[in-house]
Nucleic acid binder design. Structure first.
Length: 420
DNA sequence: TCTGGGGTCCTAGGACCC
DNA sequence: TCTGGGGTCCTAGGACCC
């Protein structure tokens, strides 16, 4: 019984390095939208003490002074590199759960019995590196939660170890004893506080509490974690790509927005983008929510945040319906006199695109949905946006700052790497 | 001056039913 | 004066994840 967790090392930073061999051994950080926070650091940058999620302006000067290299995020590129890595893994193991852009769980039970899992994983690691340039670590253990522990151990041991297998009780016990409880998968800030109060400080402490007690004092979620730490499999590998349950498009603004007329086209852009995603998922939604908020960091300015949800009479994925609903939700939550820093749209309550639910009370003035029409628009906009809705802001997608993006090396003809 | 974006799951409590 | 009990469904919000 074994699960492997494949984890790409400093994924975004490693991607940036693939086509820039000159950046070998150079500290790299990748920033969030608006170049706001540090969201990825190379090993060298971590050693410099750059924390995950730290605001860029706080570390900028010292990082650049030490010859660090900085990038704005280039998700098109990272997404493509991720797909390449996952593809290779799927070639090795029949059952793979792509858990995030840089992590995948592999069900090693689907392999032949006589495989040596450690050697097999080393082999996989070498080929992923050779074929994509991305370094990965692999943790092998009886459950998902323990495979996460294995990855943490690889990071903690801090000698060039890339594959770690936790198979017998002693190895597992040793690893658990070395893991602080807040590093356990599923234990966040709040739970950590409560657990510490109960004198549970390491993963081993947590594993030794009876699951029934944990369920009574905390929750079923944490009970599952405890069982998983004890080697009992509670979380299975989900390799069927189940459809999404909600779609969110939201952004912080590069400059604060304080009037409704500026905000409307921005929210319209979010709505258009969210509708595209929804059609790509082959789903329809019957709830459209819009939210706005000021900056929570700006303590001396008045704060406001609100969300409004519009329920639709019939499910839709027509951009025009969603635009109408978005406007209906935005107007009542907007208040003048506030400097808004972020807004977004959230689509939910999905149903299958093919099923039709008619409403007895459908407003005859509601725009008629027209799937063919939307298909043409999607087709024409596939390569580059050419058709806009009147309420959109066509100049800029959203008022966002981003100045240090690398080329889309692998997905755009005009940005392919050049060899001189 | 400057602080990300996109998800999932669970639970408590309200509305409603008989 | 005294005003039930048991159930379902939905939603908002919290906690967590990368």
């Amino acid at each position: 019984m074994a699960i492997a967790l494949v984890d790409c090392e400093s994924f975004y930073a490693s991607c940036e390095r693939v086509f820039r061999p000159d950046l070998k051994n150079i500290p790299i950080v990748v920033l969030s939208n608006n170049d706001g926070c540090v969201i990825a650091r190379s090993t060298e940058a971590k050693k410099m003490g750059i924390a995950m999620g730290v605001p860029w302006f706080k570390v900028k000067d010292s990082f650049l002074k030490q010859k660090g290299k900085v990038f704005s995020s280039n998700f098109t590129f990272y997404g493509d590199m991720s797909a390449r890595v996952m593809n290779i893994l799927e070639g090795f193991v029949p059952k793979v759960e792509i858990y995030s852009i840089d992590e995948a769980f592999l069900d090693l039970d689907t392999l032949r019995q006589n495989y040596n899992l450690y050697d097999f994983s080393c082999h996989m690691r070498i080929l992923v590196k050779q074929w994509t340039g991305i370094p990965v670590r692999i943790g092998i253990a009886p459950t998902k939660t323990l495979s996460k522990i294995a990855i943490n151990e690889i990071k903690r041991i801090n000698v060039p170890t890339y594959v770690l297998q936790l198979s017998n009780k002693d190895q597992i016990r040793y690893a658990l004893a070395n893991t602080p409880v807040h590093k356990v998968w599923g234990v966040g800030r709040k739970l950590n506080e409560h657990l510490n109060k109960a004198k549970i400080n390491t993963a081993l402490d947590l594993a030794e509490v009876s699951p029934q007690n944990i369920r009574r004092k905390f929750s079923v979620v944490l009970e599952r974690t405890v069982r998983e730490l004890r080697g009992e499999r509670c979380l299975s590998i989900e390799d069927d790509v189940s459809s999404k349950k909600q779609i969110v498009v939201s952004r912080s603004f590069g400059e604060r927005v304080s009037n409704l007329e500026t905000l409307k086209p921005i929210v319209s852009n979010f709505a258009v983008r969210a509708s595209e995603k929804l059609r790509k998922e082959k789903q329809k939604c019957s709830k459209v929510s819009v939210f706005v908020r000021t900056s929570p960091f700006n303590k001396n300015k008045p704060q406001h945040s609100d969300l409004k949800t519009i329920s639709l009479l019939t499910p839709t994925n027509d951009t025009r319906d969603i635009l109408t609903a978005a406007k209906k939700a935005l107007v009542p939550i907007f208040r003048s006199g506030y400097d808004y820093a972020k807004a977004g749209i959230l689509l939910s309550k999905f149903s299958n695109e093919d099923s039709k639910q008619f409403s007895l009370f459908k407003d005859p003035n509601e725009p008629k949905e027209n799937t063919e029409f939307m298909k043409y628009i999607d087709y024409m906009n596939a390569f580059e946006t050419q058709i806009y809705f009147a309420s959109q802001n066509t100049k800029k997608w959203s008022p966002m700052k981003q100045n240090m993006t690398s080329p889309k090396y692998t997905t755009n003809w005009y940005e392919l790497p050049k060899v001189n």
